Every structure is written in structure tokens, then in C-alpha cells.
Amino acid sequence: MTTSPPQIIDWDLAVRLGTRLAGDGPTVGRDEAAAAVAELRAGAHRSTPLVAEFTGLHADADTAPVLVVDRGGWVQANADAFSTVLAPMVAKLVEKKPPSGLSLAVGSRITGAEVGGLLGFLAGKVLGQFDPFHDPSGRLLLVAPNIVQVEREIGADPTDFRLWVCLHEETHRVQFTAVPWMRDHIFSLVEQLSATMDSASLLEDGLARVKAAVGSGTSGGSLVEMFSTPEQRELMDQATGVMSLLEGHADVVMDGVGPEVIGSVEEIRAKFNERRKGVGTLDRLVRRLLGLDVKMAQYRDGAAFVRAVVDKVGMSEFNAVFAGPENLPSKAEIHDPQAWVARVL
């Protein structure tokens, strides 16, 4: 007989709190909501051959379900994904210091509230997401209220904007289903990171860096950077390289395919880039602390890498990047595409 590891995060609390903090989003009539859902589903299916033709990567259609969700649905889906991805880290921490009954009960609610707050904040920002950790082949999530909200805010044509979002997210589906080792590679980075976890020293060192940053009046980077060791940052640099590649590749595809099927793509891109900068001082501060400014840099730097390589060698040769983990760009190579070309090609 086996026993399940103790749950150091109260996932039910995280989902309840995250859903409540996220809110419902913009007011949308029943007919308008139904039309938006139908158009997003159609856009996802329409994107499949468009992405395949542009990238040269082929993944069977319908290998991963398309789910059009509200903010609460996105919170639940990500709580499920996080519980899977964080399982190696949780097991490692519990192995090093098994929690007592009382500390587990209290601690799980505290961490559940923290995760719920994070999910609640992000649930109002995310337009779509491919979840590669959902068995057996992942799932594509499109957050309908957020898509409607953004298209209203930037004054975009709804049909054009919805297809544009679908192109980006469908590219992620293709990346993971046409490149089957990608999921295991990312999960292996998480497992390697979990092997370095020591909660006591991590907390002590991280708090020292936060104190130093506050005392000097500087930002000090994100909380992830502050609460990590050099070994962990090296692993995170590997993750940054692959995530920059995936996000940048998706941005290049959505803009490359766009002019053929989306009349207002240039206008959408210009307005959307402006919106990505964040709204207001508080919003920018929260993004900074959570490392979301790094996420924005991944879109920008990854797209620049992809465009530079494709311009030099063509899309077919660029696809060598998906041949195996050893061909993935490092964080340094993302900023030096020629170095990647010299090493891999």
C-alpha cells in the first residue's frame, strides 16, 4: 500500500480565493457570449492548418481539446496544472522536513491563500494558454471574458482579434504535440530544480536579498530571483531559453500568418504591444515582483531570435531547434542568434 504525500498547498482554497479575486470580467449578453465562444472554437480549428503551413511543424488535429473558459475555469485548470508540476518540489521538501499535523493544516492554508492570490491576479490578464501537463496530450485554454475585454479596450475588430489570439495559442499546441519530447524536457527542469530545494536556506537567503533591495531603494529583481540560489538560477536560465523560444515562435507565427487572413493585424499588434507594458504604477510593480516583466521580455527577445535565424537560414533549417533538447537555445543564445546558428547548424 502507498500513501499520498501531504498536501502543503490547500488547492481548494486557492481555487475559491483565486476565482473570487478574479471576478467575472466584462458584462456580456447571453447571445454575445455564445457568439464569442463559437467564434473562438472556430478560430482554434481554423488555425491548425495555417500554423502547420507556416511553420512546417505538423501535429494531428484534435490531439488536445480546446476549452473556452471563464476566469474561474482558468483558475481551476491552472491549479490542476500547478499541483502536477509542483509535485516533485513538494515531495522533496516533505522528505527533508516532514510537516506536523498542525503546521501542515495552517501552512497549507497560508500557501493556498498565496497561490490563490497569484491565480486571481493572473486570471484577469491571460487571454489563452496551452497546458501541456494535462493528460494525455495537453489542452488549449481560451479565456473568453479576457479576450472580449481586451478587444474592447484596444478597439479591435472582434473577429480579427479572436483569430489572432487563436493563432498564438494554436502554435503552442503544435509545439508540444508535434515535438513530443518538449513536455518531458520542461518537466525534467522542474524535477532538477526540486532536487535543489532547501526551504530554510532558501527563505533565509531570499529575505536577506529582499532586505538589501529595499534598503538600497532598488527593485532587486523579481521575487523568484531573490528566493533562488546560483544553481537554481542556472536551471531557470535554461527554462528562460526554452520559454523565450516558444513564446517568441508563437508571436512570429501569429504575425506571419496574420496578414494573409487578418486584415487589421498590424493595428492589433501595435495596440497590443502598448497594452503589454502594463497599466499604472501598482500594476507595473506587481508585474515586476511576480516576474511578469521577464515574461514580456520572453515574447520580445524570443521573437527577435526566431526572426533573426529564419531570415538567415529559412524556416526549414530553423526547425532544427525542435530536433532535440540539445538544440534548444540557451538564454545567452536567445540574445545572440548567430551563436546558436554556429553551434547547431
Rank of each mutant, 00 (worst) to 15 (best):
I9P: 00
D10K: 02
W11L: 02
L13M: 11
L21W: 02
P26K: 05
V28D: 02
D31G: 04
A36T: 08
V37K: 12
L40G: 02
R46E: 13
P49C: 10
L50K: 06
E53L: 14
G56Q: 05
V69Y: 04
W74P: 00
Q76D: 10
A79G: 08
V85G: 00
L86G: 01
L86Y: 09
A87G: 08
V90L: 08
K92G: 00
K96I: 01
K96W: 01
L102D: 02
V106N: 04
G107Y: 07
I110H: 03
G112M: 04
A113G: 12
G120C: 06
G120R: 02
H134T: 13
L141R: 00
Q149G: 12
I154E: 07
G155M: 05
G155W: 09
T159E: 13
D160A: 11
L167T: 02
E170L: 10
H172W: 03
Q175G: 08
V179H: 05
W181C: 12
R183I: 03
S188Y: 07
V190L: 05
E191F: 03
S194L: 06
T196S: 09
T196A: 09
A200M: 11
V210L: 10
G217Y: 07
S219V: 15
G220M: 07
S222E: 06
E231K: 11
D237H: 10
S244T: 02
E247Y: 08
G248F: 11
D251C: 12
V253A: 03
V257F: 09
E260I: 03
E267I: 09
R276K: 15
K277I: 03
D283R: 06
D283S: 14
L285T: 14
V286N: 05
L292D: 04
D293W: 14
M296N: 15
M296Q: 15
M296R: 15
A297W: 14
Y299S: 06
R300A: 15
D301S: 13
A304N: 13
V306P: 09
R307E: 15
A308N: 10
M315A: 10
F318N: 04
G324Q: 05
P325Y: 09
E326V: 11
H335S: 15
D336K: 12
P337Y: 10
A339H: 08
